[in-house]
């Protein structure tokens, strides 16, 4: 099965790959970048407003403000996902709505909704982190490594 491809087959595949490149429409890269910038910026601005509100009007401290902002933004992302609106935003915003914390909420809630019918344990429970899981694993993993390095550097 582990095919040693003939030269001819390789040539066919190479040629076909070029053809496919020629006939496949390009993503509108510039437009997508602009949209992602604007949407991402808008979401972050909203986050900043929430943060300022917490600090100025609710009298929260630094770490409390961060937690407050995260809670509000995650709620908004989850809420819009539940209403079936977040995927519509995502269609235009691309990475602009995936990268902020609202996108993280969307990835968890959408998976939980999708697999609700397979039950609470094997459906929602098992599948909830199907998209967010890798982000958590490698995000937390990387932060531990960086933490250890920072600690070691701090020793000297």
């Amino acid at each position: 099965m582990n095919g040693i491809k003939t030269k001819r087959q390789q040539a066919i595949e190479k040629h076909y790959k070029d053809l496919v490149g020629q006939f496949t429409p390009n993503h509108a890269l510039a437009m997508n970048l602009v949209r992602a910038f604007l949407w991402g910026g808008a979401i972050c601005t909203l986050g900043q407003c929430v943060s300022e509100t917490g600090k100025t009007y609710l009298g929260l401290g630094q770490s409390e403000t961060s937690a407050f902002t995260a809670i509000v933004m995650v709620f908004l992302g989850a809420f819009l996902t539940g209403l079936g609106q977040y995927d519509r935003i995502g269609k235009h915003a691309g990475a602009g709505s995936i990268v902020p914390i609202t996108g993280f909420a969307n990835s968890i809630v959408s998976a939980a909704m999708e697999f609700r019918r397979e039950g609470l344990v094997l459906g929602v429970g098992a599948r909830m982190f199907v998209i967010a899981g890798p982000v958590l694993v490698y995000g937390i993993g990387a932060s531990v490594i960086v933490g250890v390095i920072a600690y070691l550097v701090g020793l000297f």
Partner: peptide
Amino acid sequence: ERQFRTPLEQGGQRPAS
């Protein structure tokens, strides 16, 4: 969609192809 791709409500972009 749920079999081959992502959950329905997940907000991502589809390529032109």
